[in-house]
């Protein structure tokens, strides 16, 4: 296994707090919810596992048990939605057999198409990269059943991406503003500073 400190991108002399922050940022970045509708969902899951293991190992090495319970459960694989009317379709999507999944879904008559049907259709399009179609299907699924956490998560996630508000990027504090808001906030701060300076002079 790789050096756990390298995996988290921190030095071995980092404080517990720094490690926790690095772990949180990475966990946010690789969170399964971000990649649920991406063809790279499995790669992200592997990364997440690696980060979790690295964090656990560091905690263990530092003999500080209080951190290790931090992520359990909250950053799992996220597939806790067991009730499904389309197990085959979900299996196909997970295995990347998008055309087969689409064929199965298209075989279902119009009258039987429920919110999950629209959600899975959106999932297939999203994994293909056909974002616009994916968005309208997710939207429909959400409108038909807003109380379903899976549908609302997918829809909200996509809305965030359509405003270019990526989890794990804006929050990582990398100095490069991703969204207009960041730039605006930056400008405001800079403006305040300038004002303060000019008054001081």
């Amino acid at each position: 296994m790789n050096n756990p400190y390298e995996v988290l991108g921190v030095s071995e002399t980092a404080t517990d707090e720094e490690i926790k922050t690095a772990y949180r940022n990475l966990a946010k970045k690789y969170h399964p919810d971000n990649y649920n509708d991406s063809p790279l969902a499995d790669v992200a899951e592997e990364k997440m596992k690696e980060v979790n293991e690295a964090y656990d190992r560091i905690c263990e090495m530092r003999r500080n048990g209080s951190h290790s319970s931090y992520h359990t459960g909250s950053y799992g694989t996220g597939n806790s939605y067991n009730r499904t009317s389309y197990p085959d379709v979900r299996q196909y999507i997970m295995n990347g057999r998008l055309d087969d999944a689409m064929e199965l879904l298209n075989g279902i008559p119009d009258t039987n198409r429920d919110a999950e049907w629209y959600f899975l259709m959106g999932m297939i399009f999203s994994r293909k990269g056909w974002n616009d179609q994916a968005y309208s299907y997710f939207q429909r699924a959400y409108q038909m059943d807003p109380s379903n956490p899976e549908f609302s998560a997918a829809f909200n996630n996509m809305n965030a991406r359509r405003t270019y508000n990526n989890p794990g990027y804006n929050t990582a504090g990398n100095g490069m503003g991703c969204s207009g808001c960041d730039i605006c906030t930056g400008m405001l701060c800079a403006n305040c500073l300038c004002n303060c300076c000019s008054r001081g002079c």
Partner: peptide, 18 residues
């Protein structure tokens, strides 16, 4: 237009993040 462009850019960034 903005939504579609953002979405594509965001997907590129998410993939690159891996």
């Amino acid at each position: 237009m903005q939504a579609n462009l953002n979405h594509a850019l965001s997907d590129a960034l998410l993939s690159y993040g891996l």
